[in-house]
Design a protein around this nucleic acid. Structure first.
Length: 689
RNA sequence: GGCGAUGUAGCUCAGAUGGUGAGAGCAUGCGGCUCAUAUCCGCAGUGUCCGGGGUUCAAGUCCCUGCAUCGCCA
């Protein structure tokens, strides 16, 4: 039987709209499922909504609608949210689905028949306002904290699940399967709870108190309460007991059913659910562990601002708003990279922007851009033939992250190494749910490729005709690594991965593709035609980023030709040529589009003492915005209305966060700066030559 | 109240079974390159490894204790 993978999220209670916590869990499930598909393993992912219980009945009553209508609405919100986050559930289950109701009743009956559900009376402090029993601990001065009235002693009869009978069996299972619950801290927590001893689980509510639930099959005066209803969804969704899917993804020999939860529902999933499954197995005369899942994967909370993200606190970060602002893939990347699976993590927009710029814009985005631009500039965008022999003198630098060592440039074995070691480390990490670590591996590969570029200097190779083969090989390897990277990030950033793959001429990323990397195959054929790259992750301009840019600019400005020191001749970007400039031909001059313009508006840019923001009429539909470094020589009102010469085809840049599309020409004489103007008014847009 | 987790550079965190001068990323400083999204590469610095006590030839790493934060249970 082939291996399969099945992962579930909890079914979300429809008393709140989707928030960051829900989004994270569901994205994790999606990533895990996609990862298995990438390895060629059939994978199924299920999420859904939990819709019964008094909270829902109350919320519906408040709005004057039927519980079902209320549940439909919120459930719909969840359902819509997932595709917008790049999540593709294979099944979306609802506890009000008729199929689910049927399965729950059937299981209840079986367990009841086997004697593991019994009827019993108990008494306690019942608060009429809350419509529930309060524990002694909850009472404040003997009164209900919410209603300020003393509870009344009331007796009630209910059905109980004989959970205690499975304590030892579960303990044993946990000991024999150390990764049954992971990470380990949560396994220990469950063991500690078991050590303290369990009580039987109350699984019903009398209809006098609650009607919005699934009726007990053996007693029409009761509905089942919470966990028997909710947990069973995981197998209803596969068509228990005899559905094909159930065999394939749960009970069959190659199946690996797994759950994913946040740590707040550890007890139900780590204790109630396995004991329920053992009771079911017993009722059917099977081995106790027949129905047990493979792994329960437990993650921590996102700390948003002050408090934690939880269902009941109101501090909701709307996932959809964040993905609109930064893109779905960046959002997914941040969540997966920032949180060490199992631990709590801080969430803030600042942290997200930091990751975005550092990891996405600068590392992967820029690598993609620089490699493909070079490929187009030097090789017409065609992936060249590999030429290992041309690379003999390279001393064996490879583009390969090196597990536990740092980076590349290690093995001198062959010039043609693929990313398989990285891919293997990545795979191992993902199998252990170490998502952040898996991404760190991919980023080591990205770093390695960036280092490789600097080391090989393709722009220098391109200038020497006899190094053409060497350049071919360097570009070939870089293209292969880009393809590998595209594939490896697909589970995390599906859109970006596909965009990369299409640009590279790789086509769609398809199931099983990661296996080819593990097998050390090159994904891109030589001769593949690539497209011109688009910026995968345009930089997010923040105050910090701008400050840094301004600083750099200031530094560059300081450097100009001070005759005093024999400093290394910096190819002064901005300063006027101090010495004789090399000759150029007329066609080189012709590439510069000089136009006459009239300054319509001028204002200072806050925080920049040299810069003026100008709006210039260049005879175009819209005036151009140009930032000019003349603020120390012209007051805004002085320049307004003047005619100036503008370099119209200068690549746009952002200065101090202000876009500048062009450059105003000025004469520089020592400390004096004067803009260039014609000696009489001429039509804006006139060519200057 | 009981149990448990966490506390390591400015920030976020890695650091099996105790043993080279304690690490990464970001941030900071300096230098290099110019293919690229003002990006990339190199170098550098910083830490009472929460406080206190103990075990040991040797302790972020083990034991005890205190403090702080968080969680579970009652």
């Amino acid at each position: 039987m082939d291996k399969t993978f099945y992962i579930t999220t909890p079914i979300y209670y429809v008393n709140a709209e989707p928030h960051l916590g829900h989004a994270y869990t569901t994205i994790v499930a999606d990533v895990a499922a996609r990862f298995h598909r990438l390895l060629g393993v059939p994978a199924r992912m299920q999420t859904g909504t939990d819709e019964h219980g008094d909270k829902i009945a109350q919320a519906a009553a408040k709005e004057g609608i039927e519980p079902q209508a209320y549940a439909d609405r919120i459930s719909g919100l969840f359902r819509q949210t997932w595709p917008a986050l790049g999540i593709q559930p294979d099944n979306f289950i609802r506890t009000t689905d008729p199929g689910h109701v049927k399965v729950v009743r059937s299981i209840l009956q079986k367990v009841f028949d086997a004697g593991d559900i019994y009827f019993a009376k108990y008494g306690g402090n019942y608060c009429v306002g809350c419509e529930r029993f309060l524990t002694d601990h909850e009472l404040v001065d003997g009164k209900c904290p919410d209603h300020g009235v003393p509870p009344v002693y009331q007796e009630e009869e209910n059905y109980f699940f004989k959970m205690t009978g499975y304590t030892e069996a579960l303990k044993k299972h946990l000991q024999e399967h150390p990764d049954f619950i992971r990470p380990e801290r949560y396994r220990n927590e469950v063991l500690a709870i078991l050590e303290q001893g369990l009580e039987d689980l109350c699984i019903s509510r009398p209809k006098s108190r609650l009607t919005w639930g699934i009726e007990m099959p053996f007693d029409e005066n009761f509905v089942t309460y919470v966990w028997f209803d909710a947990l069973i969804n995981y197998i209803t969704g596969l068509g228990w007991p005899d559905g094909e899917l159930f065999q394939k993804f749960w009970a069959g020999p190659g199946a690996s059913p797994q759950h994913l939860i946040a740590k707040d529902i550890l007890k139900p999933h780590g204790i109630y659910w396995p004991t329920m499954l053992m009771a079911l197995a017993r009722a059917e005369g099977r081995e106790p562990d027949y129905y047990l899942y493979d792994h329960l994967n437990v993650h921590g909370y996102w700390q948003v601002g002050e408090g934690k993200m939880s269902k009941s606190l109101g501090n909701v970060v709307r996932p959809l708003e964040l993905k609109d602002k930064y893109g779905v893939d960046a959002f997914r990347y941040f969540l997966m990279r920032e949180m060490t699976f199992g631990l709590d993590s801080a969430f803030s927009e600042d942290l997200m922007v930091e990751r975005y710029n550092a990891d996405l814009a600068n590392d992967i985005g820029n690598l993609f851009s620089r490699v493909l631009n070079m490929l187009h500039r030097y090789r017409d965008g065609i992936v060249p033939q590999p030429c290992p022999e041309a690379a003999q003198g390279w001393q064996g630098e490879n583009i390969e992250a090196e597990p536990h060592k740092g980076h590349i440039f290690s093995s001198a074995a062959h010039q043609h190494m693929a990313s398989f070691e990285t891919a293997a480390a990545y795979k191992a990490s993902l199998e252990g749910f170490a998502f952040s670590q898996a991404l760190a591996w991919v980023w080591d590969l990205i770093d390695a490729a960036n280092k490789f570029v600097v080391r090989r200097e393709p722009w220098a190779l391109a200038k020497e005709p006899d190094k053409a083969r060497e350049l071919d090989h360097a570009l070939y390897l870089l293209c292969q690594r880009l393809a590998d990277i595209a594939v490896l990030i697909w589970p995390f950033m599906p859109e970006t991965a596909q965009a990369m793959a299409h640009t590279l001429g790789l086509g769609d990323i398809v199931p099983g593709m990661a296996q080819r990397i593990l097998d050390s195959q090159d994904l891109l054929p030589a001769g593949a035609r690539t497209a011109k790259p688009k910026a995968l992750f345009p930089r997010v301009e923040t105050d910090k980023v701008q400050a840094k840019a301004a600083k750099k600019e200031a530094k560059a400005d300081q450097a100009p030709p001070e005759a005093g020191k024999p400093q290394k001749a910096k190819p002064a970007k901005k300063a006027a040529p101090a010495g004789p400039a090399p000759e150029i031909a007329i066609d080189e001059f012709a590439r510069i589009d000089l136009k006459l313009g009239r300054v319509l508006e001028a204002e200072r840019i806050q925080g920049a003492d040299k810069l003026l923001k100008l709006l210039i009429d260049l005879g175009e539909d819209q005036p151009r915005q140009v930032v000019a470094g003349i603020a120390q020589h012209y007051a805004p009102e002085e320049i307004r209305g003047r005619q100036v010469v503008v370099v119209a085809n200068l690549k746009p840049v952002s200065l101090r966060g202000v876009e500048s599309r062009g450059m105003v020409l000025a004469c520089v004489d020592g400390g004096a700066v004067r803009v260039v103007s014609p000696d009489m008014e001429m039509k804006p847009g006139s060519k200057v030559r």
